[in-house]
Design a protein around this nucleic acid. Structure first.
Length: 228
DNA sequence: ATCCCGTTGG
DNA sequence: CCAACCGGAT
């Protein structure tokens, strides 16, 4: 009877608010496409400051090339990326990724130029690469218009009231892609802005709702005072 | 549902 | 001090 009102989040206006508040983020922070891919794997469930240290270690030891990563001993690699946590696991994952690129494409540029519909499933089949890591590489290195979903995006959109907290990765991704033009620069900025909001305002504990740029459009934010 | 794991922010 | 961290595999 009471048909559930189709949720129609104003995906665009929220983007505008975030952009106005934080300014352009110009992601992904990396000096090369390979560094971007490596960073995407190292940052799995790990704060970026710890990943940044690991990337510097790799640089200092000349290990931010495909051939160097292919040649280095896995234990030694694990030691270099220690600061990023899960170092044994991530060393294995980096090795798997590097082998995937070299064996399948010869070099990174060739892999990144591979058509999206073939590349995404191929990436997902690599050990240690799941949806978020695959889409990060596709968006930020291959410049494909695919929306990246992460823990921040899920937490924020569920608090706002757009989705339930247990929303599946693909469902939330479809929501964004159904409400936005398929433009890589737009998806790039939007994801980066979600991260900024999630880190500085929409935190797991003690969210700063009073200062949040989305206060007036947020289901939770409106509870803690009249939004302007 | 559990494991992987060092580092930092509240 | 202890959650949380730009997840993914088993």
């Amino acid at each position: 009877m009471t048909q559930k009102k189709p949720l129609n989040p104003d995906v665009r206006s929220v983007y505008d608010r975030l952009l106005a508040h934080f300014g352009p983020q110009k992601w992904w922070p990396a000096d090369s496409l390979l560094e971007m891919c490596v960073g995407a794997i190292l940052t799995q469930n790990t704060s970026w400051s710890n990943v940044d240290k690991a990337l510097h270690q790799l640089k200092e030891h000349g290990c931010l090339t495909l051939l160097a990563l292919a040649a280095i001993d896995e234990q030694e690699l694990a030691r270099l990326i220690r600061s990023s946590g899960y170092f044994n696991l991530k060393a294995r994952r980096l090795k798997a990724f590097v082998r995937f690129v070299i064996d399948g494409y010869g070099d990174l540029a060739t892999m990144l130029a591979s058509p999206f519909t073939r590349l995404r499933p191929a990436l997902l089949a690599v050990y240690g690469i799941g949806p978020e890591t695959a889409d990060s590489i596709l968006l930020y290195a291959a410049h494909q218009p695919v929306f990246v979903i992460d823990a921040y995006t899920t937490r924020i959109t569920s608090r706002i009231g757009w989705v339930e907290a247990q929303v599946r990765y693909d469902d939330l991704q479809v929501l964004f892609m159904n409400h936005l033009p398929a433009e890589a620069p737009l998806f790039n900025e939007y994801h980066a802005l979600w991260v900024m909001l999630g880190k500085d305002y929409c935190r797991p504990r003690a969210p700063r709702c009073g200062l949040c740029p989305l206060k007036s459009v947020c289901a939770e934010g409106r509870r803690s005072g009249a939004g302007a």
